[in-house]
Write a protein that binds this DNA or RNA. Structure first.
Length: 388
DNA sequence: GTCCATGATTACCA
DNA sequence: TGGTAATCATGGAC
């Protein structure tokens, strides 16, 4: 069965504008005739169908050039045939839509959206991702010494956010413009060829899907930029900062005054961390955590043990400093007529490493010698080894 | 750019 | 679980 015959069959049962129905085919009576000339009408319909089928195979310009468009539009059979063609096309379109619509949400897109939202790039601006920056910094173990880095991070994140939104706006604008253009074209063409509103809608959806994929690329690039930014600014390893001079002095004082047992307890570590962090409020240092104190002592023990000679001068220096501090304390005590007899520093500690014990014992002698040749009394120590 | 100092990380051990 | 040793990676002086 050829196309024309199929369409003619499809016309069966369709009432065209309330005209009479004959033999399953609704046909309008020819103007000025009684409608008995069936063969003539069939020929008429055949002609118009042929013209329509031909014109759909041609470009609009080509069709217009041949003045067919106007002729067809003015043909008395055009509205009826046109609506039938629309109906057929609608049925075809439905079967295509059934396979294409109702796509599940793309999990990759969802991940990207969630990440952009969490980083403060998309969604409402909430301080440019400072929460994310703070969370990452806290995870890195330095909770409050990141104000400068945070401001840099926020500035960069704000730039990313701005670029993202600008690009997104451009894409949306381009999408809208293109959609409008295509819709206008289709509406224009719908006067000539059978294009239903649903088909236009389907085309719009296709366009939106295409632009969505472009948007996804934008989101992916933005996420990558944020990840790079995070690793640059917030990665703990990259963010290593030397401790302040004051903090290093505090730690060294403790280390050299506890040389025979340089293993501060948790309480001592906390106290040291607190003492070191106080310098922050004076604006001269960085906050130091208990974990960092542990790291520092770990490194110090290893490096001291590896090269005692190198650290000898430093040890003497801190021994002298400790002695001075202790002398002041003792002087104050004497003034109060409270005669507390100082205990021997570092007494009663168990060494964890025999080799280290020997080295430290030698050094301890040096320290004590320095203390007493300098005329300073030994410092007072608490039971846990802390200086009073 | 090189070199050294140093804070952080990791694997391993007791 | 805390300490050691090796190593990485960065800061800073030169």
């Amino acid at each position: 069965m050829d196309e024309q015959a199929r369409i003619l069959q499809a016309l069966g049962g369709v009432n065209l504008a309330g005209h009479s129905v004959q033999g399953g085919m609704a046909l309008p009576p020819p103007h000025g005739h009684d409608g008995s000339d069936v063969d003539g009408r069939k020929q008429d319909i055949g002609d118009i169908l042929h013209q329509i089928m031909t014109i759909t195979d041609q470009s609009l310009d080509e069709a217009q050039a041949k003045h067919r468009k106007h002729g067809l539009n003015c043909h008395r059979m055009k509205p009826a045939l046109f609506s039938v063609l629309c109906e057929i096309k609608e049925k075809t379109g439905l079967s295509i839509r059934g396979a294409q619509e109702e796509d599940p949400p793309d999990p990759q897109l969802m991940r990207l959206d969630n990440m952009l939202l969490a980083e403060g790039v998309s969604g409402p601006e909430k301080g440019g991702g400072s929460a994310a920056a703070a969370a990452a910094a806290a995870a890195a173990g330095s909770p409050t010494d990141n104000s400068i880095e945070h401001s840099d991070y926020r500035a960069k994140l704000s730039q990313i956010r701005q670029i993202y939104h600008t690009e997104l706006e451009k894409y949306e604008q381009a999408c809208n413009e293109f959609t409008t253009h295509v819709m206008n074209l289709l509406r224009e063409q719908s006067r000539t060829r059978p294009i239903s509103p649903k088909e236009i809608e389907r085309m719009v959806n296709i366009i939106h899907r295409k632009f969505s994929s472009i948007q996804m690329q934008l989101k992916q690039s933005t996420c990558e930029a944020v990840m790079i930014l995070r690793s640059r600014f917030l990665d703990a390893r990259r963010k290593r900062r030397n401790f302040s001079k004051q903090a290093t002095e505090i730690l060294n004082e403790y280390f050299y005054s506890h040389l025979s047992n340089p293993y501060p307890s948790e309480e001592a570590k906390e106290e040291l961390a607190k003492k070191c962090s106080i310098t922050v409020s004076q604006g001269v240092g960085t906050t130091i955590t208990v974990a960092q104190v542990s790291n520092w002592f770990g490194n110090k023990r290893i490096r001291y043990k590896k090269n005692i000679g190198k650290f000898q001068e430093e040890a003497n220096l801190y021994a002298a400093k400790t002695a001075v501090t202790a002398a002041h304390a003792v002087a104050a005590a004497v003034q109060n007529s409270q005669t507390n007899s100082p205990t021997t520093p570092n007494s009663g500690f168990q060494m964890k490493d025999e080799e280290f014990q020997l080295d430290s014992a030698e050094n301890k002698n040096t320290l004590l010698t320095n203390m007493f040749t300098g005329g300073y009394p030994a410092p007072c120590y608490q039971s846990d080894g802390r200086i009073q």
